[in-house]
Simulated assay, not measured.
Amino acid sequence: DLYGQYPLSWIITPTETSTGAIKVFQMAKQKAGGLAPLIHTDCGAAYTSKAFNHYLASNNSQHSYSAPGTPADNAVMEHWWADFKSIWLAHSPQPQTFEDLEQLVTEGIDYF
């Protein structure tokens, strides 16, 4: 949520896939009551996939991309993610299991 500067939804997957990207946007849609008319992402493979773009189009959302190599195009999310990593993850015990990682991330998102 750009206005509130907090994640509406998140998932943890071993790799970035269009299936995972669609799932997290489905979760956000359910929580917010719909998708925003404009969705801005980086140019990762999950976001440039036909499946993800079809999902956005079927929900009447236009897709905006950051220019390759320009994290400033997505400054709010890049700043949030940098803080999350440097403040939360760097000062937390190393998770030993996938469940530990999920719990650590959930607690960090709640914290921020």
Results as ranks from 00 to 15, higher is better:
residue 12 I to A: 10
residue 38 L to R: 09
residue 30 Q to L: 13
residue 21 A to I: 04
residue 98 F to A: 10
residue 90 A to S: 13
residue 14 P to R: 15
residue 105 V to K: 07
residue 6 Y to M: 01
residue 103 Q to I: 08
residue 12 I to W: 04
residue 70 T to C: 11
residue 103 Q to E: 12
residue 17 T to E: 06
residue 3 Y to I: 00
residue 6 Y to R: 10
residue 57 A to S: 10
residue 4 G to E: 05
residue 43 C to W: 03
residue 12 I to T: 11
residue 106 T to R: 09
residue 61 S to T: 14
residue 74 N to A: 01
residue 86 S to A: 12
residue 102 E to R: 12
residue 44 G to C: 09
residue 5 Q to G: 00
residue 38 L to H: 06
residue 33 G to F: 14
residue 35 L to T: 15
residue 41 T to E: 01
residue 72 A to I: 12
residue 94 Q to G: 00
residue 25 F to K: 05
residue 83 D to S: 15
residue 19 T to C: 03
residue 40 H to R: 14
residue 54 H to D: 14
residue 52 F to Q: 02
residue 13 T to I: 05
residue 96 Q to S: 02
residue 10 W to G: 00
residue 103 Q to W: 07
residue 89 L to Q: 07
residue 91 H to N: 15
residue 111 Y to D: 02
residue 70 T to Y: 07
residue 26 Q to D: 06
residue 5 Q to A: 12
residue 66 S to L: 05
residue 95 P to E: 01
residue 38 L to P: 00
residue 16 E to Y: 02
residue 19 T to R: 14
residue 88 W to I: 13
residue 103 Q to N: 10
residue 32 A to P: 04
residue 52 F to A: 04
residue 100 D to E: 11
residue 94 Q to E: 10
residue 18 S to I: 02
residue 69 G to K: 07
residue 110 D to N: 10
residue 48 T to R: 11
residue 58 S to V: 01
residue 90 A to E: 11
residue 94 Q to Y: 14
residue 105 V to F: 06
residue 39 I to V: 15
residue 82 A to L: 01
residue 17 T to R: 04
residue 100 D to M: 06
residue 66 S to Y: 02
residue 43 C to N: 15
residue 90 A to T: 06
residue 67 A to D: 12
residue 100 D to K: 09
residue 103 Q to V: 09
residue 34 G to T: 08
residue 16 E to W: 00
residue 79 H to L: 00
residue 69 G to F: 07
residue 112 F to G: 02
residue 22 I to N: 05
residue 22 I to T: 11
residue 8 L to S: 10
residue 112 F to E: 02
residue 16 E to T: 05
residue 54 H to W: 09
residue 31 K to G: 01
residue 2 L to I: 14
residue 96 Q to E: 13
residue 69 G to L: 08
residue 29 K to S: 13
residue 32 A to G: 11
residue 1 D to C: 14
residue 87 I to S: 05
residue 42 D to H: 11
residue 48 T to P: 04
residue 67 A to W: 05
residue 13 T to M: 06
residue 57 A to V: 00
residue 35 L to A: 06
residue 56 L to R: 05
residue 46 A to W: 01
residue 34 G to W: 13
residue 81 W to R: 01
residue 91 H to P: 01
residue 22 I to S: 05
residue 4 G to M: 08
residue 42 D to S: 10
residue 59 N to R: 07
residue 38 L to T: 11
residue 71 P to H: 03
residue 61 S to V: 07
residue 24 V to R: 01
residue 78 E to I: 11
residue 32 A to Q: 13
residue 41 T to Y: 01
